[in-house]
Amino acid sequence: MVEVLQQIINGIAIGGVYVLIALGLTTVFGILGIAHFAHGSVSMFGGYLTFFFVTSWGFPLLLAILIALLVGLMLGVLIELLAYRPVRDANHINAFIVALGLTMMVEGINLELFGHEQVVIPTDFSRVFNFGGVTIPELRLYVILAAALLIAAMTVFVERTKTGQAIRAVAENRDAAILMGVNVKTIPLVVFAISTALGVCAGVMVGSLFAIAPGIGEGLVVKGFAVLILGGLGSIPGAVVGGLVLGITEALAAGFISSAYKDVIAFVVMISVLLFRPQGLMGKA
């Protein structure tokens, strides 16, 4: 029982990372109808950048994260302007192909700048808490708390602020939003900036919890989409539920069945949900 609880806690930590990635993907998809496949690689770029600032320039972790966030934000805006905007009105397949091309480019840039060795962002959170037999490393706890905080902040932003309202309006009906005076040229930029920032946070979490290496970003973005499929499109609660389900399933599978096949098991769960609830766990029929 303790062992199960332990794996569930581990699953919540990795699930939190998935939720952050999925939140970025779902807002971009809602506004632009684009499956932003390069999101994972861009997130890893942020993680790499943080690693670089901490180890090479000796910056404190928080400062490094802040700079990485800002750079990631600008990168997100650039990607929207240069790559996605030109294919806005073309067939949706084209936007997806552009996303694939972008993924290759960003992966290539990561490789060129940071090499192909795997890196771990050093942190000095080494304490381990113990709650009745269930151990939680300090770092893992902070990751869970930070993810929860970011998810809450994102929810408040989308639901309560004027800009968030505009984002929801564009997602719901682009033409009507234009008529209501929403500036549909700047909204995508805001969305890309925010989702990339969330992605960079996820990248830092992956980099400090596990490691960053070439290909990790692609794996992560696939998990992000799996979360969306699990949870249902365009809903923040759906992304949260989907992310936690995926993370916990994976952790349990790794702990009790086979760690080599944990991803296979996670995808099998996704496919089964698809068979019985094509609209996702939280989606409307």
Binding site: H92, F225, A260
Partner: peptide, 27 residues
Amino acid sequence: PSLRVKGHYFAIVTLAFNMVIFIVLMN
């Protein structure tokens, strides 16, 4: 199962299949 979803989601599901095939071949 994968043709039950459309557009980008079909792409992602098939991509997941490719990952599964790869993992199985590897392990």
